[in-house]
């Protein structure tokens, strides 16, 4: 489900400068994509526009059917009155319930199911939040630093698992780690300052999957390209 963004212009009310100035890009093919850029460049703003959570911008975002876009971010919390397991059971659509155990186990969350969300570590909270989104019926899942507090090894396992479980779904991964987006993502959309034209550049990533050996030189080249682009 490709998403075409054409001539996006946006300025926050009361802000002196725009966030986007004639931004054009295409996202959303099945696979793992990244949105990369410096802090404050507008990654989350852009993601919220795609998810339909931010309006009032000029330009056009065309989402072809089906268009179930979910936007998750790392600061989300679960309500405090129910345990993690109870909550996940409740918010998972009937058809996806058979996936609960697989996701929970592969995310290393089995021991957390009986606990309250606030009792978990930040990394566990990130994983629980992502797990409940993966159990929804989505076409594109935007992961805005959704694994920010998870250690590298676990993060790698989680991304590999997502790729294996959802090969037909699209993911837009927002991260500040050049190495991470270079290694795991198919395409990296580098979002740049509104002063630069074009405001986005798309760079091909290594799209690593479990069992494949990445050539170190290729990875370094991708990383260099991203750094130069941003």
């Amino acid at each position: 489900m490709p998403i075409e963004c054409r001539n996006i212009n946006y300025k926050y009310p009361g802000a002196q400068f725009p966030v986007f100035n004639n931004l054009n890009c295409r996202v959303g093919e099945p696979g793992f994509h990244a949105l990369f850029g410096q802090s404050g460049v507008g990654k989350s703003t852009f993601a919220r526009m795609i998810a339909g959570q931010l309006n009032g911008f000029a330009g056009e975002i065309e989402i072809r059917e089906p268009k179930k876009v979910f936007y998750s971010y790392n600061l989300e919390r679960l309500p405090g009155w129910s345990g993690v397991g109870e909550h996940i059971e409740k918010v998972t659509p009937e058809a996806n319930r058979k996936r609960i155990d697989e996701i929970i186990e592969s995310f290393g969350l089995s021991a957390c199911m009986g606990s309250g969300f606030s009792r978990l570590s930040l990394g566990q909270q990130n994983r629980v939040n992502l797990a409940r989104y993966l159990l929804q019926d989505f076409d594109l899942l935007i992961m805005d630093e959704s694994l920010a507090n998870v250690d590298e090894a676990t993060r790698e396992q989680i991304i590999f698992k997502i790729k294996e479980m959802f090969p037909q779904k699209s993911f837009l991964y927002i991260s500040h780690s050049v190495a991470e987006v270079s290694m795991f993502c198919m395409n990296i959309i580098v979002l740049r300052s509104f002063l630069k034209t074009p405001q986005t550049l798309t760079i091909k990533g290594q799209d690593d999957v479990r069992g494949r050996q990445i050539v170190k030189k290729d990875l370094e080249e991708t990383m260099l390209e991203i750094v130069n682009a941003s």
């Binding site: 989300e76 919390r77 309500p79 009155w81 918010v91 409940r132 929804q136």
Partner: peptide, 25 residues
């Protein structure tokens, strides 16, 4: 927002749930 976001965007938010979340917090 941190709690309601999921419910709003997954189409599960009802006024009773909204009141419950805000009262609980």
């Amino acid at each position: 927002t941190d709690i309601e976001h999921f419910y709003v965007h997954s189409g599960r938010m009802r006024w009773q749930l909204e009141v419950k979340i805000r009262a609980f917090e």
